[in-house]
Structure formats: structure tokens, C-alpha cells
């Protein structure tokens, strides 16, 4: 059996960290959650993550900053940004910078599944 792909969820919002892992597991992914960008870096999760669902607005290091930082380190992880602020300009920029997708909360499971398919 092939190894289940590892997805990391980085979000300061607890409800997201609680809800997403169950959905992702139902899709067949293994899930790790982090409540901040710093925690993700500290755990060195980029090493085992096949993909990442990253919140944009977080206290401390924001999602885009983490993305930039991983790019800088050469530890790029396919990233799906999620945000409660519907900001098309930011989304366009993030997509240009190499993000797999940028989803606006609340998003449906199909949208997420489509975005996750790009990671496969």
C-alpha cells in the first residue's frame, strides 16, 4: 500500500484546526496541525509535508511570510492558502508566487478536493 500523503494545516483558528483534519482524513490524507507559522517551522514539518493548508492572517508570522520563507530555504511545500478575508488581489499575487490555490472561507469540500488533487 502506498504511503498516505502528509498534509499540514497551519491556522491560528482552533475551529479550523479541529474541522479540517477530519475532512482531509476522509479524503485519505494524513494530517498534522500547527497553530502558527513558527510552530510549523519549529517542528520542521516542511520535511515530511506533501502539501500544506496555510491561513493567511495569523499573529506573528503570516501565511504568505511562511510561504516566502520556505521558498527562500528551498523547502517548498505545495501550499493551499485559506483566508476569511476575500481579497482577490492578494490571491492573484499568491498564485503568481507559486501557491497551488487560495480559498476564501467558507469553502466547500469539493473546492478543497480539487485543490488537493493538484498536489497528488
Amino acid at each position: 500500500m502506498t504511503k498516505r500523503k502528509q498534509i499540514s494545516v497551519v491556522d491560528d483558528d482552533e475551529s479550523v484546526r479541529e474541522a479540517l483534519p477530519d475532512l482531509l482524513r476522509s479524503f485519505g490524507f494524513d494530517v498534522h496541525t500547527f497553530d502558527s507559522a513558527e510552530a510549523f517551522l519549529h517542528a520542521g514539518a516542511f520535511a515530511f509535508s506533501d502539501g500544506m493548508i496555510l491561513d493567511i492572517a495569523m499573529p506573528g508570522m503570516t501565511g504568505p511570510e511562511l510561504f516566502k520563507e520556505l521558498t527562500r530555504r528551498g523547502n517548498q511545500v505545495p501550499t493551499i492558502f485559506v483566508t476569511a478575508l476575500k481579497d482577490e488581489i492578494l490571491r492573484t499575487r499568491l498564485m503568481k508566487d507559486g501557491a497551488v490555490e487560495c480559498l476564501f472561507k467558507p469553502f466547500g469540500d469539493e473546492e478543497l478536493q480539487v485543490a488537493l488533487a493538484a498536489i497528488d
Partner: peptide
């Protein structure tokens, strides 16, 4: 949107 996102995600999960 934050709680709504949670609700939608939970609902999707629930159905699945």
C-alpha cells in the same frame, strides 16, 4: 467567515 468556515468544513466532514 471564520465560524462559517468551521461550520461548512464540519458539515462536509459530517456528510462524508
Amino acid at each position: 467567515n471564520q465560524p462559517l468556515a468551521g461550520i461548512v468544513t464540519n458539515a462536509s466532514t459530517c456528510l462524508r
